[in-house]
């Protein structure tokens, strides 16, 4: 606890130090731990798209004969878990603030749901006309493009360069993967995209400490 002799004053240099310290301290307390915001997503991509690559490899090869439901199921469950984790952590740190910042966060959260819901609705209309290998590219490429865009938009909303650059990186990696074709897309997104998310979490955390 701070001293209770509160009318005590400090010299100007000490006052300036105190100001900087309290401002940085509040910022740190209110920013969600970047590890919780990025690492669940990074692991989700690494594992989820890794399984996709093994099941639906390049040139229609099956590297590991996993049941069809396993990669899709694992990716869906992991995505939901990652969304819940980062949502809870983000809400907890934003919950003590009320005003324009919270409204911004809430609107941004809803735009994620709208984007995912909208794409899933469109893509599911093509399940029976597109062969499995191409369908994976449609879903994977489409959702990762959305995520890259939303990270860039998030960087714009919170004026956060790391998040913006991460979004740009994800968008580039995704485009390269889509052009490389089915199978390769999963591998590239798993390693470069998932890896990028893990690195972003680490950088953000080191900066906050």
């Amino acid at each position: 606890m701070a001293s209770t002799d509160d009318e005590s004053t400090v010299d100007p240099a000490e006052a300036l130090r105190l100001i900087e310290h309290e401002r940085a301290n509040l910022e740190r307390e209110l920013t969600p731990d970047p590890r919780w915001m990025f690492w669940p997503w990074g692991l989700t991509w690494l594992i989820g798209f890794g399984l996709f690559f093994l099941r639906w490899g390049p040139d229609e090869r099956v590297l590991v004969d996993l049941p069809d439901w396993l990669p899709t199921g694992a990716l869906t469950v992991l995505l939901m878990a990652a969304g819940a984790l980062s949502g809870i952590k983000g809400a907890r740190s934003g919950g003590s603030i009320s005003g324009p910042a919270t409204d911004r966060g809430r609107m941004f959260g809803f735009s994620w749901s709208a984007g995912f819901g909208g794409l899933a609705l469109v893509f599911s209309q093509f399940s029976d006309v597109i062969p499995g290998f191409r369908l994976g590219l449609l879903w994977g490429g489409g959702l990762v493009a959305l995520i890259g865009t939303l990270f860039m938009a998030g960087g714009a909303v919170w004026n956060d360069r790391t998040t913006f650059l991460l979004g740009a990186w994800i968008s580039v990696v995704n485009a390269a993967g889509v052009l490389a074709g089915p199978g390769w897309h999963s591998l590239i997104v798993a390693v470069a995209g998932g890896g990028g998310l893990l690195v972003a979490g680490l950088i953000g955390w080191l900066r906050l400490r």
Partner: peptide, 28 residues
């Protein structure tokens, strides 16, 4: 005064029009 300087410094870091709940401010 040291205590109020700390309060005002912390609050100045919030965006204008944003409010912080009392217990969190106290904890910080």
């Amino acid at each position: 005064a040291q205590a109020r300087l700390r309060v005002v410094s912390a609050l100045s870091q919030l965006h204008e029009d944003d409010r912080i709940v009392f217990p969190k401010l106290q904890e910080i």
